[in-house]
């Protein structure tokens, strides 16, 4: 068993995601504590892999990995992890890492920590803080055994520390990538046409607390008075109350408006990922323990309908 820390990086359309750099920066620090090396793993061609501050970068440039293919990625990672026996394997808790981390854990029989916010080494032991229960509780856990997998929430570590120019070593795929059950077919881009919420300076964001499609109008009215545009959390979009183009968060869009006015959104980590850098965040929620109040600049424990009606009277 080595003291190495392996990072599974991710990229789309030739660009690595921020979380890849965040993980590499953290991996360097952890590898030093374990007396090993940080190894960035890049899967798929069409990217410049020599952009990390890792001790080493391995690049499996096989074309079958150019687009994310969960099965192909999983098999290659499993083989490389078996071959190299790192102390720690790091994924992002992203739409990519979420497909891989627990699967690898089940295959290898090594512990996995999801929703990780912080990873550290104390007296040689690995300690992970994990943001469970929709952000309402932080669990501090120590994975048993000599190897562990952690999947970290995006935005948990500074990305700067991960940028560098370590020359990537191209290696052949350790497994045969023919005969896979999963075949990538195509990328589907979102339809243009709706307002672009990422360019708005003011947003009124509605969550499940809005209660139904018939109430969206009220939010629209408030938005109009404020010179804002309405956006939403995921459940509102899943329910069909607003189009996908209005969704903010992990699987939606990242926004950074001057005003983010929130009605009935709890503040789940997946939503925060998309808006936590807004300049002024005001949240209305009936639950005084809603996690959003730890992030908002101003908050009120109140019924969103009453506050909205009262604001409409004033505006």
């Amino acid at each position: 068993m080595s003291g190495d820390v392996m990072v599974i990086t991710e990229h789309m359309e030739g660009k690595f995601s921020d979380v890849s750099f965040e993980l590499v920066g953290k991996a360097r620090e952890l590898a030093e504590a374990f007396g090993g090396e940080s190894i960035a793993l890049v899967l798929g061609g069409g990217v410049d892999a020599s952009v990390f501050a890792s001790h080493a970068t391995l690049h499996v440039a096989d074309a079958a990995l150019n687009h994310f293919n969960p099965e192909a990625y999983a098999r290659v990672i499993e083989a490389l992890v078996k071959e190299r026996s790192p102390r720690l394997v790091m994924f992002g808790w992203t739409v990519i890492g979420m497909d891989l981390a627990a699967w690898l854990s089940g295959r290898m029989g090594v512990p996995c920590v999801a929703y990780a916010k912080d990873v550290r080494v104390e007296n040689g032991a690995l300690i992970v803080s994990s943001q469970a229960y929709g952000g309402k509780l932080i669990a501090e856990v120590s994975p048993e055994g000599e190897m562990a997998i952690v999947a970290c929430l995006a935005g948990s570590f500074p990305a700067e520390a991960g940028h560098g120019s370590t020359q990537a070593t191209v290696i052949p795929s350790p497994v045969d990538l023919g005969g896979l059950k999963m075949k990538f077919l195509e990328v589907i881009k979102p339809e243009a046409g709706d307002v672009d919420i990422t360019t708005q300076t003011k947003l009124v964001a509605v969550g499940r607390g809005i209660g139904g499609k018939e109430n969206i109008e009220l939010a629209e009215e408030l938005a109009e008075k404020l010179g804002a545009v309405v956006c939403a959390s995921r459940p509102v979009v899943d329910a069909g109350w607003l189009p996908r183009t209005r969704q903010v968060g992990k699987s939606g869009l990242k926004v950074k408006p001057k005003l983010y006015f929130m009605l009935g959104i709890s503040g789940a980590p997946e939503h925060l990922e998309g808006m936590k850098d807004a300049e002024l965040i005001i949240a209305i929620n009936t639950d005084k323990k809603a996690p959003i109040f730890n992030v908002a600049h101003y908050g009120a424990v109140a019924d969103l309908f009453e506050v909205t009606e009262a604001m409409l009277e004033l505006l």
Partner: peptide, 20 residues
């Protein structure tokens, strides 16, 4: 899954909204 629980608690809040 082999996780030893050391602690579980509400997040230590570094900031909190100014409540109206």
């Amino acid at each position: 899954g082999g996780l030893r629980f050391l602690k579980m608690a509400p997040p230590v809040v570094t900031g909190h909204a100014e409540m109206i």
